[in-house]
Design a protein around this nucleic acid. Structure first.
Lengths: 343, 343
DNA sequence: TTGTAAGCGTTATCAA
DNA sequence: TTGATAACGCTTACAA
């Protein structure tokens, strides 16, 4: 049982209370408390007021200030699938960068579907956020964008992008998909299955485009049977791998567009008695910390989740200060480990 | 490049603007818009005003309302280590429960150290949050609690607890640690190492207490060499496993107080040519989705992260509505898989 | 049931 | 540089 400060609490003083004690007007205190501009020494009076405010435990009320200034120093973040470690890393980087710049983040983590995300956008805008980040735009749903823009606050797509011309900060998913596939091609694989994730996610979609790029360049026709769309979870990986391995002519290698699904595929291989990499080569995507430690460590593509978050906030800060935001595509890197071999 | 609504945006109308169009006073609109109490039909006038507000695209300004009502309908959440999937699941559950109750969450994810967390608490309180959740209290640091209570808003510890009498919602870590250890004892292990996580985290600490409980009950003296404190990351698991396996008399089984560290230990076993479970039994903690799919699936303890989050928000909502919050300890479950065997 | 008016805690404008 | 005053958009006594 907890008492929560029914009486123990000293209420936070207001500007007016400081002013009364200091014998000046509230507006004077407000001015004294705002940062002296660099290169200028604060006057004795300013120092006196600051010391008093400090002593009285003054803390500015952001709500009140925000009402007046129309700025809340808050960034809204719509970020579904937070339970995924990659997304959570992205979120952490966003928060850290925002905090360092004096902003706080208001997060909404609705289901990764259009309607719930639209509702989240509305809710955040009702809170008068100064900028908006959305990590899970859906392809083919321009209304998400329209809704974000309706508010008039700077708005940026992170991680995923939409079809339209929204500014986005993403990793280079298409190149990543190509690198993964080229690696398998170089090892001699010709039937390469892909657990391609959801169609609405540009990340998954572009990794799949990269897969097609690689095959096309190598002069290998794309067999649509080898492309199975699922979700990003372990279960999706399991379902996808089962579909691929049940084909009349199953693939000799599988590229899963995220590590979590790759681990699902790993479970399927285990249950079917397939050895990795001898019977089946497997490539993941993201390089989550765990996959390097597996008995057969996973070949994967390292995607810079944290850097994407940092860069996105930097762009958004730029936009919020009236600048022009610009798109960023961050480089990825193939990490070859033990789960792939030649045939 | 993005234009962000320099002109395209229709500014959100204020209450006063609705009132002017409706030919009534703003306060009338305010009243018309507040929910009719259940069982009462809204009058024709109320319906007319609501329809108009809807048509004009009215959205209440939470900032302004909050200033007046002194309630922001916002819950502050201090949640370090968000990149960890378990913590992220907790966060997601907190967000979902809060949103369903009409609250939004403001999150801070500082480093898992005392000072940064104190700063985060201050920042959230400056935003006038209505309640505060902290997921990473440190043992032996009553000042964290004191700081939280200073605000006078209901405050709850989640996941971890402190030494003092703060109300906390946690999983039953001590029992979990005991179950894991008893399982190994029943298999005949007598030298059981524990990768015990950080000392400041009550979760890790209590799982370790459970380990001690089990040994004591079995009449086996606790060998402090077998208890290595690390962090919760993969690297910690690697370091811990190396320390344990380098002992003159190494353990035949290792209990890692979280799955991530257990996977680190898995990597060490691989590198040392130790087969799991034949040469070394391994137990993790949390049952993250991946560990069930490993070639040798991991025996672990399932800890209800999402339920902890839901329950915490429920208690906090209770506290925020003037009720008495009470502590909750949610049950855990041992999941026996292939990574443990008798000797 | 409706309108009036005050006020939440700040900041911006203006005059002194 | 300072003080007075208004305003941000809303809610809520209180009066009509």
């Amino acid at each position: 049982m907890t008492r929560h400060g029914e009486s123990a609490r000293t209420p936070v003083p207001t500007l007016k209370e400081i002013a009364d004690v200091a014998g000046v007007h509230a507006s004077t205190v407000s001015r004294a408390l705002r940062p002296t501009r660099p290169g200028r020494e604060p006057s004795a009076e300013v120092r006196r007021i600051r010391a008093l405010a400090d002593e009285m435990g003054y803390r500015p009320n952001f709500i009140a200030a925000g009402l007046r200034t129309q700025r809340t120093r808050t960034i809204g973040v719509v970020i579904p699938r937070l339970a995924d470690g990659v997304i959570a890393s992205l979120c952490q980087a966003i928060e850290a960068t925002a905090t360092a710049a004096g902003y706080q983040i208001l997060i909404a983590t609705p289901p990764d579907e259009v309607e719930p995300q639209l509702r989240s956008i509305d809710l955040l805008q009702d809170r008068q956020v100064d900028g908006l980040l959305i990590t899970s735009l859906h392809l083919g749903h321009p209304e998400m964008l329209a809704r974000m823009r309706a508010s008039g606050v700077p708005t940026l797509a992170v991680n995923r992008t939409g079809n339209d011309s929204i500014t986005a900060v993403t990793a280079d998913d298409r190149t990543g998909g190509r690198l993964a596939t080229e690696h398998l091609l170089e090892l001699g694989h010709r039937r390469i299955g892909i657990i391609a994730g959801p169609r609405h996610a540009s990340t998954a979609w572009r990794r799949t485009l990269g897969y097609r790029d690689a095959l096309t360049r190598a002069g290998i026709p794309v067999d649509d049977q080898l492309i199975v769309h699922t979700d990003f979870e372990v279960e999706g990986g399991i379902a996808g791998a089962n579909l691929l391995l049940d084909l009349p002519e199953p693939p000799t290698a599988i590229f899963a567009v995220n590590d979590t699904a790759a681990v699902g595929a790993l479970g399927v291989a285990r249950d079917r008695g397939l050895r990795i990499p001898d019977d089946l080569s497997l490539v993941g995507y993201n390089d989550i910390p765990l996959v390097g430690q597996l008995p057969v460590p996973l070949t994967t593509v390292r995607s810079p989740a944290a850097e994407v978050g940092v860069s996105a906030v930097e762009q958004l800060l730029l936009g919020m200060s009236g600048g022009e935001m610009s798109a960023r595509t961050l480089p990825v890197e193939l990490i070859v480990r033990g789960s792939t071999t030649g045939r």
